[in-house]
Every structure is written in C-alpha cells, then in structure tokens.
Measured scan of single mutants.
Amino acid sequence: AVSDRLIGRKSVVMEAISPQNSGLVKVDGETWRATSGTVLDVGEEVSVKAIEGVKLVVEKLE
C-alpha cells in the first residue's frame, strides 16, 4: 500500500503534537495528521512509526 512506504520515513512537525491532540507533519512534501505519545514542537524531526486509519503515529528522532 502507498501508506506502507511512509513507515520509517523522516518527517518534520508542522503543527505541534501532544498525547491529547493530534498535529500535522510533512512527509515527502505531503502533509499528514499525526499523533504521538509525547509532546512534539513545530520544526522537530520525527520518524513515522505506524499508521492508524488516516493518521500517522510518529516519535522524535534520537
């Protein structure tokens, strides 16, 4: 599936994300709604860990 190619990809937070609120990330020039178990600020680099419905699950790059 097209979405499977996103797992493991680097992306950049475009709208802040917290455990309570989804935000936005940009992956390969496309904007996606995303969630995370931690707070992520605009501009942080993250990695796509999973896809749940139409949202990406991301975490901060170490």
Score class of each variant (00 low, 15 high):
8 G>D: 04
31 T>P: 06
34 A>C: 08
45 E>W: 15
2 V>A: 13
59 E>W: 00
14 M>A: 07
50 A>N: 07
8 G>H: 04
5 R>C: 12
50 A>V: 04
44 E>M: 12
55 K>P: 00
1 A>G: 12
17 I>C: 04
13 V>G: 02
45 E>N: 08
39 V>H: 14
24 L>S: 10
5 R>Y: 09
51 I>V: 13
42 V>A: 07
57 V>K: 04
37 G>K: 13
33 R>E: 15
24 L>K: 11
49 K>V: 15
22 S>A: 13
57 V>N: 04
18 S>A: 06
61 L>V: 11
9 R>M: 14
5 R>W: 08
10 K>D: 06
29 G>K: 06
20 Q>H: 12
22 S>T: 13
18 S>L: 06
59 E>M: 06
41 D>Y: 13
17 I>D: 02
15 E>T: 10
55 K>E: 14
50 A>C: 09
59 E>K: 03
18 S>H: 07
58 V>I: 02
11 S>N: 03
61 L>D: 09
18 S>D: 08
24 L>R: 09
3 S>D: 10
19 P>Q: 05
14 M>D: 04
9 R>C: 10
1 A>R: 12
1 A>F: 12
33 R>K: 12
57 V>Q: 06
35 T>E: 09
12 V>A: 03
44 E>P: 01
61 L>P: 07
33 R>G: 14
3 S>M: 14
58 V>K: 01
52 E>G: 04
52 E>K: 09
25 V>N: 01
40 L>N: 02
29 G>W: 04
7 I>N: 02
35 T>D: 09
10 K>L: 14
48 V>S: 01
22 S>I: 13
16 A>C: 11
48 V>R: 01
47 S>Y: 15
48 V>D: 01
6 L>I: 08
3 S>F: 11
61 L>Q: 08
39 V>G: 07
13 V>E: 03
56 L>E: 03
44 E>T: 12
4 D>P: 10
31 T>K: 08
20 Q>A: 11
58 V>N: 03
31 T>S: 10
37 G>F: 11
19 P>D: 04
8 G>Q: 01
31 T>Q: 10
59 E>D: 09
40 L>Q: 05
9 R>F: 06
2 V>P: 15
53 G>C: 04
34 A>N: 06
10 K>H: 11
31 T>R: 08
27 V>C: 09
47 S>K: 14
31 T>E: 13
40 L>H: 12
25 V>R: 00
44 E>V: 10
53 G>H: 05
53 G>T: 04
27 V>P: 01
56 L>S: 03
50 A>H: 07
10 K>Q: 09
20 Q>L: 11
44 E>H: 05
32 W>T: 08
52 E>D: 14
49 K>Y: 05
52 E>W: 10
16 A>R: 15
62 E>A: 12
57 V>E: 05
29 G>H: 06
27 V>W: 03
44 E>A: 09
19 P>M: 05
52 E>R: 10
12 V>W: 04
39 V>A: 12
38 T>H: 13
5 R>F: 08
11 S>K: 01
22 S>P: 14
25 V>I: 08
9 R>W: 04
23 G>Q: 00
60 K>P: 12
61 L>I: 13
62 E>Q: 12
61 L>S: 09
61 L>Y: 11
44 E>S: 07
49 K>T: 13
24 L>V: 11
61 L>C: 10
7 I>Q: 04
38 T>Y: 10
15 E>M: 09
35 T>V: 14
7 I>D: 03
14 M>Q: 07
4 D>L: 09
32 W>L: 10
19 P>F: 04
43 G>V: 02
36 S>E: 05
37 G>T: 14
24 L>H: 06
46 V>D: 01
21 N>I: 13
24 L>Q: 07
15 E>Y: 03
54 V>W: 11
9 R>D: 02
22 S>Y: 07
28 D>I: 03
10 K>A: 08
52 E>F: 10
23 G>T: 01
59 E>V: 10
45 E>G: 05
59 E>C: 06
17 I>N: 02
13 V>T: 02
40 L>D: 02
60 K>G: 06
11 S>Q: 01
12 V>H: 06
9 R>P: 03
48 V>C: 01
35 T>R: 03
47 S>F: 15
8 G>C: 07
11 S>E: 03
14 M>C: 10
24 L>I: 10
7 I>M: 06
11 S>T: 12
50 A>R: 10
32 W>I: 10
35 T>M: 09
34 A>L: 00
29 G>Q: 07
